[in-house]
Design a protein around this nucleic acid. Structure first.
Length: 483
RNA sequence: GGCGGCGUAGCUCAGCUGGUCAGAGCGGGGAUCUCAUAAGUCCCAGGUCGGAGGUUCGAGUCCUCCCGCCGCCA
């Protein structure tokens, strides 16, 4: 879809904004992978990525979420150009036992660790040209206030109660587990130790008093919400998956932990012995950003679209809507779910050593190139596979040869001696923060602007590299490339 | 074991709500251009739409059974 629309944009002379938007609305691209049929057209829209846990450096899955959200956001801006109509939030999730433990291991205060890793995410998103309007960190004061207020609302509505929880608890995963999800493995001393069936992390029998959220009460309202809005969660298989979860028993949710064990978080209002469960804490960020609990947030909620990975579907499609209903609010307008990227057919993992550094990709394939690849080759419904050759071939074929070839022909002196070009529509191509973006080039200045682009010198296949092991070379040459 | 999702050209995927008896990109084969970055343009081959039944005037699309993969529950 991007190719076609880019083609059309380039081909048009003096395209007005209105006719352009009309054109878009008239076209029927059934290949649109996200099923974006924005039925709240001309309304303001608020897009969010998940907030990313700062226990590790960002990977391409994080970037993929951000790029998807960015694309949706930019698309909405094209439809509704007013600066006040679109809002896009991303950020970092900075509370939790893992952060607490990782910081201790590194000899840092948790806040120092958070500052470092959050900065990495911010840097990545800047480099990737993610046009978010907000970046939130759950350690901010406004967030603490929002969460505590939200808690107070739930409490006032009788949806929280103190309960004694007894069961297996996994500190690493920060969750309680039913017996069925626990297995035994040989421990260091040879005896069998209980571990999580999923993660393999140790679990221990825990008996403690926590605050419990009456999640079970929302099983039917959640079902009604989803059945009443088949588009609430897309793609459709994920909608089905959530409905299936709701066919089963939905037990109440423990939403706090002992402060003596977990102190890096937000204390329960009026009870310092308990810390608010990190997922409740994290999910409220979506409200914090838009001003909750001040009344202003209502102008952005619920016209909200969450872009999430499938691994956190349950939190966003079951717990979060239930919490919102409990607090007297509507669930989000849309939840767009994407799958994961594998690398050469294998899941990324540190132990395999195949984690792909997104900043390396942005450098190697250019920012727009890698963004294009993620959007063009990504299929939300399925896990998609990344390998260097695939990226290179796609960019060569579609950007360099097809689109780039068109540009070069149009700008060649033999073909266009007067150097006359249509002006770029600035609505469609807002000034990029990246120097050298071809979109900046218009009119006679194009050659000069494009001259700053990486060129291919004498190498006929500049992006053809063996298994993304060699970086693109920049050579001094008068020839330019569209990227 | 129960429930749910998925299975479309060599590869990656569109094909939503039954109706030009299936398309795109890549890959493959052929032709052509030499203007522009040794690239472009055009044409072609390639599909038991997992298998078998059924409903229907008509099914990739609906129903049943079977096979395979994935997920949830037990």
């Amino acid at each position: 879809m991007l190719r076609i629309s880019a083609f059309r944009l380039l081909g048009r002379t003096g395209a007005s904004r209105l006719s352009l938007l009309e054109d878009f609305s008239l076209r029927h691209y059934s290949s649109d992978p996200l099923g974006v049929q924005d039925d709240t057209r001309d309304a303001r829209a608020y897009f969010t990525t998940p907030i990313f846990y700062v226990n590790a450096a960002p990977h391409i899955g994080h970037l993929y979420s951000a790029v998807l959200a960015d694309a949706l956001c930019r698309y909405h801006r094209l439809r509704v150009p007013s600066a006040a109509a679109t809002r896009f939030s991303t950020g970092t999730d900075e509370h939790g036992l893992k952060i607490q433990q990782a910081a201790a291991a590194a000899g840092l205060a948790p806040s120092e660790l958070c500052d470092r890793v959050s900065a990495q995410f911010q840097q990545l998103f800047r480099e990737a040209d993610i046009s978010s309007t907000d970046f939130i960190r759950t350690t901010e004061a406004r967030h603490r206030m929002a969460v505590q207020h939200f808690w107070g609302v739930l409490k006032a509505r009788g949806l929280l109660y103190k309960g004694l929880y007894e069961g297996w608890y996994c500190a690493s995963d920060e969750c309680f587990l039913p017996e069925a999800k626990v297995t035994r493995q040989p421990g260091p001393s040879g005896d069998l130790c209980p571990v999580s069936l999923e993660s393999g992390h140790p679990v221990s029998w825990t008996k403690e008093e926590n605050y419990i959220f009456r999640l079970s009460q929302f099983r039917e309202p959640l079902q009604r919400w989803l059945r009443g809005d088949p588009q609430a969660i897309t793609p459709e298989p994920f909608h089905h998956a959530v409905l299936q979860w709701l066919e089963e028993e939905l037990p109440d949710l423990s939403v706090s932990r002992r402060s003596s064990h977990l102190h890096w978080g937000i204390p329960v209002p009026g009870d310092d012995s308990q810390t608010i469960y990190v997922w409740l804490d994290a999910l409220v960020n979506y409200l914090t950003v838009i001003g909750y609990p001040n009344a202003e947030f209502k102008s952005w909620w619920p016209t909200t679209s969450h872009i999430i990975g499938k691994d956190i579907l349950k939190f966003h499609a079951v717990y979060w809507p239930a919490l919102l209903l409990g607090a007297g609010m509507s669930p989000p307008h849309r939840i767009y779910v994407h799958s994961h990227w594998t690398v050469c057919g294998q899941k990324m993992s540190k132990s395999l050593g195949n984690v792909v550094d997104p900043r390396t990709c942005l450098d190697r394939y250019t920012v727009d190139g890698f963004r294009y690849f993620l959007l063009r080759q990504g299929v939300p419904n399925w896990d998609c596979d990344y390998y260097g050759e695939k990226v290179v071939k796609l960019l060569d074929s579609e950007l360099a040869f097809a689109l780039g070839g068109l540009l070069n022909r149009c700008t060649a002196n033999r073909i266009n001696p007067s150097g006359t070009y249509p002006a770029f529509c600035t609505t469609c191509f807002p000034r990029s923060r990246h120097a050298g973006s071809a979109a900046m080039a218009h009119g006679p200045s194009r050659p000069a602007a494009c001259g700053s682009l990486p060129d291919r010198g004498t190498n006929p296949h500049p992006l053809h590299r063996q298994a993304d092991s060699q970086p693109l070379r920049h050579q001094g040459s008068s020839q330019v490339v569209f990227y």
